[in-house]
Design a protein around this nucleic acid. Structure first.
Lengths: 206, 206
DNA sequence: ATCGTAGCTGTCCGATCGGTCAGAATCTGC
DNA sequence: GCAGATTCTGACCGATCGGACAGCTACGAT
């Protein structure tokens, strides 16, 4: 954002600025140490506010999670809807993989949160919605007669991508890489992983 | 275990039987809902004992985690030691992937626990030991000049396998498959994922 | 029968947690 | 400047947590 652009924008309200900061801090903590291990006090401390201030802006801890995850889940739903609306083809597969990778790169922390903690967060509406989307995603990539290997390929692609962009970063000496470097590599690896699966697909879940 | 074998074994002591049951229940819960979200009371309820009984058998919650994870980490260390002790070759790689897959299949819940919750459990000695092993594993598969794609391949292989055998099972209609079916599929997929990496390796970490 | 020990339990404790609420501080529009 | 609204805060609450500890029961050895 250049100085010129800044001058043309309305000043951000305190409420939306504080809310934005709190959401960012919360998401980072949910993704790194988990929802259960993230306390409101930790979020408050990391953002430089009081716990009461956190609760002024969000009705509850769960409400924070909902606000933090909803944009990602909305987006996933959108690209999945588009994918299943088209007749299955190598082209539509390819297009979807591209969409999915952009999604993963953009919403890596959200993805990591609901993928790796989904089981402990069952019953929370936004997480249940995410889980339903994953089931639908699985069904659109692997049909009911999918082989063990196909299912593994899907699971490894999804879980591996979710893991390696977030948790995996803590195991390597450096940050993983810039998105510009990651994207082509992800395309290569995920395309390769899922390529055999595409040859066995007989139908797509609507 | 046949009846004959049973007759030749000393009766299991109450202590070791109770301890075994508690460990099994704890591991299942640590892997499914996470360490932080698993309470001693939950473990006790699931195993049919009181919380005090849990603490009679284990000094603390952390002590349970240590006892539960140590066998897996010992085993991972062993196969990794063996791998790095040999000169790098396609053969030793192949052998290691086989060892690793057996490890993953046998210790899937332990792996899932320390892979996906490592960050929230930093500072716990057994987890730090596991994390150090993963760093060492990464270094033995990817050298310092590893490409972005190689690192991704490693991360997706590790994180994906850890995820799909545990959490991934909750997203599919059925249990994934028997180990006899899983193993060859894992060999295929992980070998394929890591095959390009093997061609770029220049040295192994001792 | 008696004693010591293993195994188990309920009660209690201090700490932490998510959340409530009243009040103070700051901001905004007139 | 003033009043009202917004934002922020500290004190407090009940619930849950990991863990300490005393006490009970059952069992095996003498």
């Amino acid at each position: 954002m250049t100085e010129t652009e800044h001058a043309n924008l309305p000043a951000e309200s305190i409420r939306s600025r504080t809310g934005r900061e709190l959401r960012a801090v919360a998401l980072a903590q949910f993704a790194s140490v988990g929802f259960a291990a993230t306390s409101l006090q930790h979020i408050a401390d990391a953002a430089g506010f009081s716990k009461s201030s956190v609760l002024y802006h969000f009705a509850s801890k769960e409400a924070i999670l909902t606000e933090v995850l909803t944009p990602a889940i909305d987006h996933l739903e959108k690209i999945l809807d588009r994918f299943v609306a088209e007749p299955d083809s190598v082209e539509s597969r390819k297009y979807f993989v591209g969409d999915f990778i952009d999604f993963v790169l953009h919403y890596r922390f959200e993805l990591h949160t609901f993928i790796n903690q989904g089981q402990s967060l069952v019953g929370i509406e936004v997480v249940d919605r995410a889980r339903a989307l994953v089931v639908r995603l699985a069904a659109s990539i692997c049909d009911e007669q999918a082989s063990v290997e196909d299912r593994l390929r899907f699971g490894i692609a999804l879980g591996g991508a979710a893991y390696t962009l977030v948790a995996g970063m803590t195991y390597l000496d450096d940050d993983l890489a810039a998105d510009d470097d990651l994207r082509p590599a992800l395309v290569t690896v995920l395309t390769e992983l899922l390529a055999p699966v595409s040859h066995t697909l007989s139908r797509k879940q609507p």
